[in-house]
Design a protein around this nucleic acid. Structure first.
Lengths: 341, 341
DNA sequence: ATGAAAGCGCTAACAC
DNA sequence: GTGTTAGCGCTTTCAT
């Protein structure tokens, strides 16, 4: 790269001192109009850009928010990121996004690297592996340090911290009620392995609603999908006997879409024979045929809230205001009815 | 936040000098074993982490690669990012991802903010608006500065720079040949507005292959989708007369999925009456029923290549090696056959 | 074996 | 109106 101009080079080129240049570039009235114009012209000509690293070091402020998510290929998280970005940009903040790939070690590594002065605050959605292990020391350390931190979506249970969550239990509850109200009596759920709390909560709410109707779900209709195996084969089991469910709730859009494929392959009609409802914020539900009824997650809102929260915390720190106690923001879900029910 | 420990505080706590601490923390043999141990123990106890900002400033190296993409909700770009991340991490690099939201101004803003010393190199996929305008001054400026820079996927035509592209023409060509080989004679294409070069190239290749077979495509079968309007309504036109296409190529997975919906709603069978082939790297093709045959884009590979390229350039700069002339890496596409053809 | 000093790029308090 | 200085946190010669 050719030499980059900085304040010092400008200063020596123009025979003034660095501080004069610095002030002139900020249009300070301390500097004479002439010198100011000269310096600004020179700076523009040589495409001078202040070094953000130096600025951040000086101001003890990076104007960057770190975000750690498990997977970027999950559409939900990209919605959240868009939501975070929107709020952050409004406050002149930028994002530094890191992927934990659902690995504990990678998550720790990301945290280390982001909290070494690179960012002013951190938004974290925990890695699957971390939640399985229940190992939250790395989080607790940040909390002890009072590092501005907000968890979202995949939140470690039991940690005293700021959080933004989807009301997964209410969402599952809503899904069951919706199907029951449609007159379905034989409900099934496609859920996730036990340690993934979001799936589990959706399952909890679903089961609770059924019980509230004094009904029950057949044990074999509660399917916890193992993603390391063929998903459609597992779903097939629901239809291995004549007595198959007439309403299925899938805790995400992938399972729901696979269920639709299985059902159609068997020759059954959606929603005539079986209704399907998913849980998601993605584009897939609009693209399936028939289009899919879902419990909407509103990831974008979640991103908004999480960003607002962390920015508040950062600002408190700046102004040495009194610390607001930890809060948990709950993002409401709602039903988006389409053709699959 | 409570006081953060830094080298200076450690030094004064332990009654040694900052430079001693610095060396001890790097296990330098200049420092006596005893002092070394003492300092390291203290650092660990107080969870000392070196400030990356200061390090970057000192070393003139941030170990960060900037990435500017138009949209994070496009699955293709998330695949590319995963690919970039993988290579970057192998070289101890991290990413700073920015979204241009397909806006020219936002893109400029992102570039400004990333090239102010925050990153060692930059990977850019151009915003739609930038390509429409054909305004590439902001790119040219970076090239003139010899800032380590690689364009990927949406590459500004005519710019002398390093690039990684999908062979869109070959992909379109492949799609047509595939359909023709299956015996289809009446082909249609769902394409994008003119300024989106990737769509246009796919269209070019598609048309060329048809011509090579001494056939031609009906003008009304070349549909350029306007995304501000209802997509399915536009696709419907293909089926407004009895003479509808028997093979459809969609330049992305969204159009393809919508086409499938339209066809099934009309009551036609896929692939019996109409075959569909998409162009994508996403998850959707596996979830549609029937599953979708596609030309695979290999976004992950593209990310790998782009990261490798920019890291090479950074390294050259470091070692003041001779500059390798600009290169263009082409990522091959291939057909993934599923049930829609 | 340890420390002092300079400097990465920038700014702000304080001279002059 | 302009310049000097010190310092953000760190490293690395070069003393001692």
């Amino acid at each position: 790269m050719p030499k980059k101009v900085n304040i010092k080079t400008i200063a020596s080129e123009l025979g003034v001192s660095p501080s004069t240049v610095s002030k002139a570039l900020k249009d300070s009235h301390e500097i004479g109009a002439e010198t100011r114009a000269k310096i600004q012209a020179f700076a523009k000509m040589y495409n001078y850009k202040p070094n953000s690293l130096a600025l951040s070091l000086r101001n003890q402020k990076t104007m960057i928010i770190g975000v750690i998510i498990p997977q970027i290929t999950h559409h939900f998280f990209t919605r959240v990121i868009s939501g975070i970005e929107y709020i952050a940009n409004q406050h002149d903040y930028n994002l530094m996004i890191c992927l934990s790939k659902d690995k504990y070690d990678k998550e720790i590594q990301n945290i280390e690297m982001l909290t070494n002065g690179r960012v002013d605050g951190l938004l974290i959605s925990a890695a699957k592996e971390t939640l399985e292990k229940g190992a939250y020391d790395h989080f607790q350390r940040l909390i002890d340090e009072e590092f501005p931190l907000v968890f979202f979506d995949r939140v470690p249970p039991g940690l005293k911290a700021d959080k933004v969550v989807v009301d997964d239990i209410a969402g599952g509850h809503m899904a069951a009620n919706f199907l029951l109200d449609k007159g379905h009596k034989n409900l099934a759920i496609l859920s996730t392995p036990e340690h993934v709390t979001v799936g589990l909560d959706r399952e909890k709410g679903f089961v609770k609603a059924i019980e509230e109707h004094d009904m029950e779900m057949k044990p074999e209709f509660k399917l916890r999908i193992d993603e390391s195996q063929d998903i459609e084969l597992q779903i097939n089991k629901l239809f291995s006997t004549g007595n198959y469910p007439d309403g299925i709730f899938a805790v995400n859009e992938i399972y729901a879409a696979h269920a639709m494929k299985v059902i159609q392959r068997i020759g059954l009609q959606i929603p005539k024979d079986v209704s399907i409802i998913g849980f998601t914020d993605g584009i897939i539900p609009k693209l399936t045929s028939p289009s899919m009824t879902v419990i909407a997650q509103h990831g974008y809102n979640m991103g908004n809230k999480a960003a607002e929260l962390v920015l508040n915390i950062i600002q408190e720190d700046d102004n040495e205001e009194e610390k607001i106690p930890y809060q948990t923001v709950v993002i409401a879900t709602d039903v988006v009815e389409r053709e699959s029910t």
